[in-house]
Write a protein that binds this DNA or RNA. Structure first.
Ligand SMILES: [Zn+2]
Ligand SMILES: [Zn+2]
Ligand SMILES: [Zn+2]
Ligand SMILES: [Zn+2]
Lengths: 138, 138
DNA sequence: CTTGACCCTGAAGCTACTTCAGGCTTTTCA
DNA sequence: TGAAAAGCCTGAAGTAGCTTCAGGGTCAAG
């Protein structure tokens, strides 16, 4: 299977596949005489695994850890559990942040129901005012 | 006011301040004979404005748009409203994504209450299984 | 034998900064 | 007075996770 077919069958871009290879997330594939990459079903599985972990918001570094764990069946899965716990805490925190943000944006947007001139726009006035008052947060 | 004092009084790192200048988000400051940057209260305000927008999850490009709007008091504030509407939609969508993610992570984590050997870990088994089934989402 | 689909590499671009290397300027204080 | 320390300068490179680009080779079909 060439890279194009792998890309089609997983929905992952060719460049991304090559990128994962450079990052040692995908095993080095065989090559044809013409230097084309040749993939096996094992590569398809691994690529799907990576993408599924990515869809769970894992970083590539975390994916690497999971792959390592998976490929050492005799080890303990404590690292896996810890990784998930940490990830869950991160996501929870981010959700809280974003919900606050929703609130702020809604309030701000509500200040100017009908667009008019900038010089009387309550949104911009409020942005200026808040900037003066609020301490840097980010 | 030198760059260090500006940094202290706004909570923004010196390097970030220089970065904003390179990006034309902060007006070019005066310089001393020794080539040190000299800032005015106007710079403090502008920097606070930038950081407040950033705390609302605006990109620097969006901050640029807001600054432009603010500095053209005769114009309409339609772009400002549109920007906020778009941002709100983005945030709403991201919250939904993350709440789904919370669900998935919780379920996954629940599969292995007590860490044991990798080869029997239900988390890793489930990751492999889902990777096979689920289409690439990201 | 040439066209077009497919593949290759290495480098650079993206965001929003941070870090680093190497070198000035100004203040302090012994 | 002189030297250390604190503060500032520049340009380049690093961060994550890709994407895009430039320039070129391979292969099947017509
Ligand atoms: Zn409210
Ligand atoms: Zn308005
Ligand atoms: Zn559920
Ligand atoms: Zn387990």
């Amino acid at each position: 299977m060439q890279i194009g077919e792998l890309a089609r069958s997983t929905g992952v871009k060719i460049e991304t596949i090559r990128y994962y290879e450079r990052e040692h997330l995908l095993p080095v594939p065989q090559r044809t005489d013409g230097n084309y990459r040749l993939y096996s079903p094992r590569h398809v599985e691994q690529l799907r695994f990576i993408r599924y972990c990515r869809s769970l918001d894992m970083s590539l570094e975390e994916v690497r850890i999971l792959i390592e764990a998976r490929d050492a069946p005799a080890g303990s899965c404590r690292t896996v559990n810890a990784l998930l716990d940490e990830k869950m805490a991160e996501v929870d925190a981010r959700v809280d942040e974003l919900r606050q943000l929703q609130h702020q944006l809604r309030n701000l947007r509500g200040l100017c129901p009908q667009p008019d001139e900038v010089k009387t726009c309550a949104i911009l006035m409020e942005l200026n005012r808040s900037a003066r008052i609020v301490k840097a947060q980010i």
